[in-house]
Design a protein around this nucleic acid. Structure first.
Lengths: 110, 110
DNA sequence: ATCGATACCTCGAATGTCGATGCCTTGAGT
DNA sequence: ACTCAAGGCATCGACATTCGAGGTATCGAT
């Protein structure tokens, strides 16, 4: 019965993660927090969405992962964008723009 | 392995269908064609997506269906928007706007 | 007579999100 | 000393949606 608005537009998570990593390497939790904060708390990335997404990106070699020690000596997994990831980000950004523009045309009832 | 751009932004189909019906009653095929045409051929609604969507909308009473005879005497199923459907369209349109705005904030790296 | 467009619908596979759960560490509060 | 929140990684099963293919049928034109 609930008509909940989704936390996310399905299919856009990979793009958001790539974009976040384009600002510099980051770890999983940090990525989620950055997206949450910069979106004005509108977007909340659950861990059950985030880690599968990172796996996808790893498999496609769009990101690279490395276990490192954080400033406090704690182990964290640092993700960084690859060259292929940068290309993929450009592709997804462009395609997303096309789709939104197409939807806008329908919604404006031109 | 294919990096195809999706035909649709998942989760937006119901909204597009409701919006199309807001212009007046239409039948399934006509809805798909309208969205295809007005989007500049960017959006293609497969029938395997369309009819399940129409079922969802029927179940929620956001649209009404009626078997009628077309001008050529052929039976077609005419769908039309209900009052509840109009409200739902407003909701989805608003929520979609929020989501796109939130994504834009991330993508602009504000 | 057959072909392509119109028109309806269902099915299975693939994909992606989401909430719950589990494990571990660090730091702050009591 | 103990607890508990927060940070941090990850997986699992349920659920929804899209998508291609398949199935049926009518109509107009070749």
């Amino acid at each position: 019965m609930a008509e909940r608005a989704p936390d996310l537009l399905p299919g856009t998570l990979d793009m958001l993660v790539l974009k976040t990593l384009a600002r510099g390497p980051n770890h999983g939790y940090g990525i989620a927090q950055h997206i949450h904060r910069i979106s004005g708390e509108a977007l909340t990335i659950g861990e059950g969405s985030l880690y599968p997404a990172l796996q996808r990106l790893l498999v496609n070699a769009w990101v690279r992962a490395e276990w490192t020690a954080s400033d406090t000596g704690r182990k964290v997994r640092q993700y960084s964008l690859t060259a292929a990831g940068r290309k993929q980000l450009a592709r997804e950004t462009r395609d997303f723009g096309y789709l939104v523009a197409a939807i806008a045309r329908v919604m404006e009832g031109a």
